[in-house]
Simulated assay, not measured.
Amino acid sequence: MADPTRRRLLDLLAAQGEATATTLAERLPVSRQAVVKHLAVLDAAGLVSGGRVGREVRYAVRPAALDTTARWMASLAADWDRRLAHIKRVAEAAEAAERDAHPAPPD
């Protein structure tokens, strides 16, 4: 998910419903072979599935897997927000204690 090409592939598949690697490569600045490799990673992660239709392999998004991933990412973001808020409180308290210990001289 961290790779921008993979995110773009997910966006394209979500918009189109399903597509071949060739069709997807036409909309990206990478080769068809690169698209196939990215799709293999997304498939291994369970985010897309590929099904053979004649000679073509058509890929589609697995919505349930994306929902699970989105919930996990939201939970992770909330944890980081809490951690950063704690760091901010500690830093502000330390700054206030430093100011109280060494007040500025009067003008």
Score class of each variant (00 low, 15 high):
R8S: 11
A101M: 06
G17I: 13
R62A: 03
A101I: 00
L24W: 01
L24D: 04
I87C: 12
L42W: 00
A74R: 09
Q16V: 04
W72G: 14
L24C: 05
E26K: 07
A45N: 08
G51S: 15
A94Q: 07
H38W: 00
L12Q: 05
V48C: 10
R7C: 07
P4L: 13
R71W: 13
T5Y: 14
R6W: 05
D67L: 15
V90Y: 06
W80D: 07
A97P: 02
A97Y: 08
V90P: 04
T69A: 15
K37D: 04
V35G: 03
A70L: 15
P106M: 14
P103M: 05
K37E: 09
W72T: 14
T20Q: 11
A93E: 10
L10D: 03
R55K: 09
Q16E: 15
A64V: 13
V30R: 11
A65Q: 15
A78C: 08
R83Y: 14
G46V: 09
V36H: 02
A19D: 01
P63M: 02
G46S: 11
K37T: 04
R82L: 11
A91Y: 01
H102T: 04
L47N: 03
A45H: 08
G46N: 14
A93I: 01
T20D: 13
H38P: 02
M73K: 05
P105F: 14
M1K: 10
E98M: 07
R32Y: 03
V36W: 07
A34K: 03
R83E: 11
K88G: 08
E98Y: 06
G54T: 04
D43I: 00
